[in-house]
């Protein structure tokens, strides 16, 4: 993984994600706080099956454009934040693996915590992404699906 030199880094990838890598990337000399959030595959679901993996799909260009919009909105709300990364996995993601990582640095911790929460909540509400739940002997689209929300309405 190349370390992007700029302050925003959105990425949709079929390769495993690393919170450590994003934490290091987001660490900046003027920032005393880095908050990372990871979403991981859990074994329970609304359908009652024992989940073994999730399968995510999207159009990468559409999803990355929307991720960039979400990051831009976070910057307009928390003007002091430093580096911001949001990476989302696609393809098959096994139980316990990371599906999404958010990393935010800022001079002080409060902005980093608030922006990180905003980012993951808004990604879930606003970014085009679809997951199938996979269990022994079957699979189905997640029943948690909801309409896409405009980023500005969040």
């Amino acid at each position: 993984m190349n370390l992007a030199p700029n302050l925003d880094w959105v990425f949709v990838s079929s390769s495993p994600l690393s919170a450590d890598e994003l934490c290091k990337w987001a660490t900046r000399p003027n920032c005393g706080a880095v908050v990372t959030f990871c979403g991981t595959v859990r074994n329970t679901s609304t359908t009652g099956h024992d989940i073994t993996s999730l399968e995510y799909e999207t159009d990468v260009a559409l999803a990355e454009a929307r991720l960039a919009e979400v990051v831009g909105e976070a910057r307009s709300r928390w003007g002091e934040i430093g580096a911001v990364a949001v990476h989302h996995r696609i393809g098959t993601v096994e139980l316990g693996e990371i599906t999404v990582v958010v990393a935010v640095s800022s001079p002080h911790r409060q902005d980093a915590f608030e922006a990180a929460k905003y980012l993951i909540d808004t990604v879930k509400n606003c970014v085009p992404m679809w997951k199938r739940e996979v269990w022994e002997g079957g699979s189905a689209w997640s029943e948690e699906a909801h309409d896409i929300v405009s980023v500005r309405k969040r």
Partner: peptide, 10 residues
């Protein structure tokens, strides 16, 4: 044109 059913990311 993109056809986007209800989403389930994260």
């Amino acid at each position: 044109i993109a056809v986007l059913p209800p989403i389930s990311g994260g």
